[in-house]
């Protein structure tokens, strides 16, 4: 016991954490936190969009023009980029959340299911983000 106590590595630092292999399920877990934090930070932007888009026809016009002419000193590409961040974070958090609920409800806790569903979560959210992002930036 005494020997073990002596050789304990101490508090884990970010550098130590980065030395470990991160499985796909772990990546989804990490991104669930990251996307949640992004949504938390962008909450005022989301409410601003809700506010201006539903309040009146005039405010809807200023909502739409923010994506064309910018918003105050913020250029339009930055508004679009913030919207894209919101889209990715929402999709990632939503799909990963459904995965959580599914695993809670069905007790699907096998290694294989964790990997497969993580792969599905990452790829479907990336694909939908790319589709909506291309639309947002006027690629089609």
């Amino acid at each position: 016991m005494a020997q073990t106590a002596k050789t304990r590595p101490g508090t884990m630092r970010l550098f130590d954490a980065l030395q470990y292999r991160l499985p796909l399920a772990g990546l989804v877990s990490l991104l669930h936190r990251v996307s949640g934090a992004v949504l938390f930070v962008l909450l005022p932007f989301a409410i601003w969009m809700f506010d201006t888009s539903v309040t009146s026809e005039i405010s809807f016009g200023s909502f739409a023009s923010a994506f064309v002419a910018g918003l105050g000193f913020v250029p339009p590409w930055a508004v679009k980029l913030a919207a894209l961040a919101l889209i990715w974070a929402y999709l990632q958090h939503f799909i990963a959340g459904l995965r959580h609920l599914w695993m809670d409800a069905t007790h699907s806790v096998s290694n294989d299911f964790g990997r497969q569903s993580a792969l599905f979560t990452l790829s479907s959210s990336a694909l939908l983000t790319a589709l909506l992002g291309a639309k947002l930036f006027g690629l089609y």
């Binding site: 938390f40 909450l43 005022p44 409410i47 809700f50 506010d51 539903v54 309040t55």
Partner: peptide, 20 residues
């Protein structure tokens, strides 16, 4: 700060909804 942030955002969103 997080509580203040969330309370403020919740209040704003409710206010928007209220006047629809």
């Amino acid at each position: 700060l997080a509580i203040a942030w969330l309370a403020g955002c919740t209040g704003w969103a409710v206010q928007v909804l209220w006047r629809l």
